[in-house]
Each structure stands twice: as structure tokens, then as C-alpha cells.
Amino acid sequence: MVNSYSKKAYPWDNACIESFHALLKREWINRFKIFNYRHAYKLVFEYIETFYNTVRIHSHCGYLSPDQYEEEYYAALDRKAEALAG
């Protein structure tokens, strides 16, 4: 395995994570005064687990939240299974 580092001030090498970090800061972190590493860790965990992966809409999910997308996906599978079963 070879480590790959982008040049300083050249974020295009990893645009997806750069975009996520910008969202994290804009939507969540900038609202708080962070006291220490543990506090920052808890804030990031809370954002990811209780908002970003559950409630926040995503364009790749058809502008649904991941929870809504998953519900629709399994509902469609159930409909297909019922149609096949007769």
C-alpha cells in the first residue's frame, strides 16, 4: 500500500471528503465552542449518527433521507416479492 497525499491547498484530490468536512463545519461544528478532543469527538459522532445518516436529505438518495430511502427500498422489495408470489 502506498500513501497518497495531495499538495497543500489542493483539495480536489479528495473532493468528496472535503465536501463532507465543509458540511460538518457549516451545519454543526461552528455552532459550538469545543472544549477538548472528547467534546469534539462526541459532536462529530452525534452529527453523523443522529442527523447526517438518518435525517439529512442526500442527492444520491433522490433527495430523501437515508432512512426514508431505506424504507422505500425495502417496501419496493416487498412489493416485488408479493408480485412474484402471486
Results as ranks from 00 to 15, higher is better:
Arg56Gly: 02
Asp13Ala: 11
Tyr74Phe: 07
Val2His: 10
Pro11Asn: 02
Phe32Tyr: 15
Tyr5Gly: 13
Asn30Tyr: 14
Glu27Asp: 10
Ser59Ile: 05
His21Ala: 06
Lys7Val: 09
Asp67Thr: 11
Tyr47Trp: 14
Val55Phe: 09
Leu23Ile: 04
Thr54Gln: 08
Lys33His: 11
Gln68Tyr: 01
Ile48Thr: 01
Glu70Trp: 13
Met1Glu: 10
Glu82Asp: 15
His21Asp: 06
Gln68Leu: 02
Ile48Asn: 00
Gly62Ala: 04
Ala85Phe: 05
Ser4Met: 15
His60Gln: 15
Ala76Thr: 09
Asp67Trp: 11
Ile34Cys: 10
Glu72Ala: 07
Lys25Met: 03
Val44Thr: 01
Thr54Val: 09
Leu64Gly: 00
Val2Cys: 09
Val2Arg: 09
Glu70Phe: 14
His39Lys: 08
Asn30Gln: 11
Leu23Arg: 00
Glu72Tyr: 11
Phe20Val: 08
Ala83Arg: 06
His58Ala: 02
Ile57Gly: 05
His21Gly: 04
Tyr74Arg: 03
Glu70Asn: 08
Asp13Met: 12
Glu82Val: 13
Asn3Arg: 11
Gly62Thr: 03
Asp13Gly: 10
Tyr74Met: 04
Glu82Arg: 09
Phe32Trp: 11
Glu18Gly: 04
Ala22Pro: 01
Asn3Ser: 14
Glu18Met: 04
Val44Tyr: 00
Pro11Thr: 04
Asn14Met: 04
Glu82Gly: 12
Leu43Arg: 01
Asn3Cys: 15
Tyr47Leu: 06
Ala81Thr: 08
Tyr73Gly: 07
Tyr10Phe: 12
Ile29Ala: 00
Arg79Trp: 10
Phe32Met: 08
Val44Trp: 00
Tyr10Gly: 12
Ser65Met: 06
Ser65Ala: 12
Arg56His: 05
Tyr5Ala: 13
Phe35Tyr: 15
Val55Cys: 10
Ser65Lys: 05
Cys61Leu: 13
His58Val: 01
Ser6Pro: 04
Phe32Gln: 10
Asp67Tyr: 06
His58Trp: 01
Phe32Ala: 09
Cys61Phe: 09
Tyr5Ile: 12
Val2Ile: 14
Thr50Trp: 00
Asp78Gly: 03
Asn30Leu: 12
Cys16Leu: 14
Arg38Met: 15
Ser59Leu: 07
Leu77Ala: 10
Arg38Val: 11
Tyr52Lys: 02
Pro66Ile: 00
Phe45Gln: 14
Lys42Gly: 14
Asn36Trp: 01
